[in-house]
């Protein structure tokens, strides 16, 4: 029966204008158009959204947990990227 399996889609919903789309969940659909409609019916039936993206799950490339350290740790020791790193004399404004 595998040939009748509908592919999995990831659903991203913009909850209101001005916000970005965020991952809401996933669902099955035979094609993009029905995926979009199924997403509307499932993930916005309580008025949770104003715009939807659907993406075939197979199209997503994810970083691997095994690469977590080389990927993300080097960013941890660069405090000079954050504004709080810098000391500014008291009374100086608009900085």
């Amino acid at each position: 029966m595998t040939h009748t399996d509908w592919p999995l889609w990831e659903v991203f919903v913009r909850s209101r204008r001005g916000l970005s789309h965020t991952h809401a969940g996933s669902l099955h659909a035979p094609d993009a158009e029905l995926a979009l409609r199924n997403a509307r019916d499932l993930y916005t039936r309580r008025g949770e959204g104003v715009s939807i993206w659907v993406v075939p799950s197979s199209a997503i490339t994810a970083s691997s947990p095994d690469e977590k350290d080389p990927f993300f740790e080097p960013a941890a020791d660069k405090p000079y990227r954050h504004p709080t790193f810098y000391e500014i004399p008291e009374g100086v404004q608009h900085l």
Partner: peptide
């Protein structure tokens, strides 16, 4: 026929 259609 399929859960998604229940909801629809």
């Amino acid at each position: 026929p399929v859960l998604e259609e229940e909801v629809a």
